[in-house]
Nucleic acid binder design. Sequence first.
DNA 1: TTACTACCTGAAGTTAACTCCAGGTCAAGG
DNA 2: CCTTGACCTGGAGTTAACTTCAGGTAGTAA
Lengths: 129, 129
Amino acid sequence: MSIAEVSEKFNLSQDTLRYYERIGLIPPVHRNKSGIRSYTEEDCKWVDFIKCMRQGAGLPVEMLIEYVTLSRQGDNTLETRKGLLVEQRGRLAEKIEELTSTLLRLDDKIERYEQTILLKEKTLKQQPE
Amino acid sequence: MSIAEVSEKFNLSQDTLRYYERIGLIPPVHRNKSGIRSYTEEDCKWVDFIKCMRQGAGLPVEMLIEYVTLSRQGDNTLETRKGLLVEQRGRLAEKIEELTSTLLRLDDKIERYEQTILLKEKTLKQQPE
DNA sequence: TTACTACCTGAAGTTAACTCCAGGTCAAGG
DNA sequence: CCTTGACCTGGAGTTAACTTCAGGTAGTAA
């Protein structure tokens, strides 16, 4: 797959794809003889995973680079990699809790707005013009 | 309450508190005769709300400034303000969904790591040293 | 009076994570 | 052969949201 196709497929700009590769956020992508990127299935899986973790979960780039680097070092980094994921999973769960409680707070506030607005309408009706 | 106390209470730096006020993210704080901030109960409520919406929910500063500006314009902006909140509530709910599905994906990946690690250990035992 | 501390302001600096750009290569079509 | 279009690189520029700084004031303690 060309970079244009991958960009289209994952809705990431070509610049972003090259940037991710440059900083090691995805492993080096396969190239053809004239140096042009040709994404394999494997490359695409990395893009998918990284997009999900970055844009979906907002995990920090630094941590993901570390993860990718470890992945490229083979099987004796399995434990470490799992550790990283477990840690981030924890963070994510916390974040979800926080967002959920903020959601409730917003709901509360919206509810109060509704009360206030209703009250105001009633008052207005009692004093037309 | 002095800015130092408010900073302590909400765990926001004094600089951040002044910054929030300067850009209109919270309404102007009450001052004493020599120009020093003295936060009222009301001021603190704003700080609390804004901290929650920014750090807790990550709502954009721009939108919050608009909300605060509207609040200071009185009752005929009630509907508009409610609209803003409802919109952000929607965004937040979406975000939570996204994070939750990413969490599941992470769980899946962690599970697979466990499998792989177990498998590797077994293999090692069969071929000691 | 002098020194100290907390506070003030406007402006410049920082950080993360892209995003854009200038200048260059390469293969294909006319 | 020449042009066109997709792609390449290294490096500079951008954006949001703070954070730091230089230079100044005001109240208080020795």
